[in-house]
């Protein structure tokens, strides 16, 4: 009984009971790795930082984690943001342009990229909030146009970048861990502060739960919507800069491709419902970690990337099923039917 309530406390802190299933999935996957992948958990201290596959997972997974934080808030308002993958490309392209053709230093180029990308992101917010366009359509428009803008900025080339700051953000180490981990933690702290210590979080949940009622209660629904899309754009910009720094180049055509789906997947696996309302930031991060672990496992097991979507699909459906109240209820009645004397 006592452990039960302790577990409950922990799980609510992590964002609701559904998180158990995400953790369970992750544990299962790690078990597969432990058995089939050689030296999966081997960690060494090398050149002043930790080195090993788990570190890679944290590092490569950080892009989806950053996206997932912004996506969580968008989904909590009952929307969805398909443009984040393209916005990553926009941020990378602008940073590359400013650093090369623009002749700027990283100190001004990166904020510029963040600012412009956030503004483009808030464009979909404006479309949704002010013009009443459906989120899928509004962000689809930004998604299609965004990739075009990014290609236009880099002239269709892959621009190689020498800038040390950018390279540090994408591939440097801080406190023995990839710097991107610090970035994720910092963004998480910021998001938690904004949503748990101010009324913003409450407004978001209210908007997602019942928009009309919220408006009557004086919640600035439109402003909230514009802000969450802007924030999602900001997160995408950070992820774009990380991705660009990671490969030391701005690859407008390919960076962030299909990543919006990974981000949505992470959020939902993390326990936030697509219908909006309550949201779980830590759950989203766990979801992102689950995806990256899955991807890395695929690489290690030699599964070609074209077939890799199949296990991903299975995981999505399983996690969704396990989180579904209907399925849980069925499971319970099934269990009861099997062991009637115990429950009686």
């Amino acid at each position: 009984m006592k452990t039960d309530s302790a577990w409950k406390a922990i799980s609510t802190w992590f964002g609701g009971g559904s998180i158990i299933w995400t953790l369970l999935g992750l544990a299962l996957l790690l078990l597969v790795d432990a058995v089939w992948v050689k030296d999966f958990f081997t960690l060494e201290w090398r050149d002043g930082h930790l080195y090993g596959t788990p570190v890679d997972i944290l590092h490569q997974g950080s892009k989806v984690m950053l996206l997932a934080l912004g996506m969580t808030l968008v989904i909590a308002t009952g929307g969805v943001d398909l443009s984040v993958g393209s916005l990553m490309a926009v941020a990378g392209a602008i940073a590359a342009w400013a650093l090369t053709a623009g002749g700027m230093s990283a100190a001004s180029a990166l904020p510029l990229a963040l600012l412009v990308t956030t503004l483009i992101g808030s464009l979909s917010g404006l479309l949704v909030a002010v013009l009443g366009v459906q989120p899928i359509v509004a962000t689809l428009v930004v998604m299609v146009a965004g990739r075009g803008i990014a290609m236009l900025v880099t002239g269709g080339q892959i621009l190689t970048l020498q800038d040390p700051t950018l390279r540090f953000i994408g591939g440097g180490y801080f406190l023995g861990l990839p710097f991107t981990v610090t970035l994720v933690v910092a963004l998480l702290a910021l998001t938690l502060f904004l949503t748990r210590r101010t009324a913003f979080g409450l407004f978001i949940e209210a908007t997602g739960d019942n928009e009309t009622a919220s408006r009557f209660c004086g919640v600035p629904v439109r402003l909230v919507k514009v802000l969450v899309y802007a924030f999602s754009g900001f997160c995408a910009a950070l992820a774009g800069i990380v991705a660009t720094g990671n490969i030391h180049a701005a690859d407008s055509a390919r960076v962030g491709e299909m990543m919006e789906l990974d981000a949505i997947f992470a959020v939902v696996v993390g326990g936030t419902a697509l219908t909006g309302g309550r949201f779980h930031l830590l759950g989203s991060l766990l979801g992102a970690l689950l995806i990256q672990t899955l991807t890395t496992t695929m690489y290690n097991l030699g599964v070609p990337p074209t077939v890799a979507p199949v296990p991903k699909a299975v995981v999505i459906v399983l996690v969704c099923l396990l989180q579904s109240p209907v399925f849980q209820a069925r499971l319970r009645t099934w269990k009861k039917a099997k062991t009637p004397e115990v429950t009686a």
Binding site: K38, Q60, N246, R254, T295, N300, P305, T306
Partner: peptide, 22 residues
């Protein structure tokens, strides 16, 4: 070992990170 990197720079890096350890 032979694995697809999808002709991409980012994928080439990610795949190699995994394979060099294995």
């Amino acid at each position: 070992a032979s694995q697809s990197g999808d002709f991409r720079r980012s994928q080439g890096k990610e795949v190699m990170e995994a394979l060099v350890k294995a």
